[in-house]
């Protein structure tokens, strides 16, 4: 396992080298597990490519279908895990749960204990989602945290915070922007942002 073509032993030349003790600890474990035959560098590469291929476009696709097709939307809200299989997405064994925003309800998602997130549908979670400050505060002062994201809510709007504590994974179904009647599913999907799917953005814009 010593030659220079062995990717398990090389740092990626176009990426900065990690120097912290614990990053190196991680890379040491990786090297030992590859050397021990537990997995291969090719398997690792395939997993990384799959993870990097997931993005909020997937969530946007689901939202656009729900806006266009009321029956799909009903199935999605009732049993998200089953409904998204129609679009080729499968999050099992976790239970995919869709939270519908309306004029009187705003939903926002957090994982206070960890940082659970529907990665397959939203891609890598943002750094702030994993941060102490978001996790600590959004359950207790959601309106103040949302204001930091630029979302100001009147007291007529009910705020629902969803703490993703166990086997459910959540995605917000944002409100469809006005003036999008007759738009194609593809056009609609392009309006959907990552933050609107987490609930830290309320209004989608067509401009």
């Amino acid at each position: 396992m010593g030659d220079h073509h062995d990717h398990s032993k090389t740092f990626q030349p176009d990426h900065p080298e990690p120097t912290s003790d614990d990053a190196l600890l991680g890379l040491a474990l990786r090297e030992l597990l590859i050397d021990g035959g537990y997995f291969t560098a090719a398997e690792e590469q395939a997993v990384i490519e799959k993870m990097q291929g997931a993005s909020p476009e997937n969530g946007g696709h689901i939202v656009a279908r729900a806006w266009k097709d009321p029956e799909f939307k009903a199935r999605l809200l009732d049993h998200g895990s089953e409904a998204i299989k129609e679009l080729g997405f499968d999050l099992s064994p976790t239970e995919f749960t869709v939270l519908e925003n309306s004029r009187s309800i705003h939903n926002v998602v957090v994982c206070t204990l960890c940082s659970c997130y529907p990665r397959a549908l939203l891609g890598m979670s943002p750094a702030w989602y994993k941060s102490k400050n978001y996790r600590a505060r959004v359950v207790r002062e959601p309106r103040q945290v949302l204001a930091e994201f630029g979302v100001e809510l009147s007291s007529e709007v009910e705020v629902r915070v969803h703490d993703s504590t166990a086997e459910l994974r959540y995605m917000v179904l944002p409100q469809r922007p006005a003036g999008t009647e007759g738009w194609t599913e593809q056009q609609l999907a392009a309006l959907v942002t990552r933050d609107s799917l987490i609930g830290t953005q309320r209004t989608l814009t067509t401009g």
């Binding site: 990426h15 990053a23 890379l27 990786r30 990384i48 990097q52 750094a127 600590a136 930091e148």
Partner: peptide
């Protein structure tokens, strides 16, 4: 959940390659 903490840092951060490697591992 519920502890006192400061403002949320909204900066976007790229995931370094070694972080993807640990995730994959």
């Amino acid at each position: 959940g519920g502890l006192d903490a400061g403002p949320v840092d909204l900066a976007e951060k790229d995931t370094a390659y070694w972080e993807w490697q640990i995730d994959a591992m």
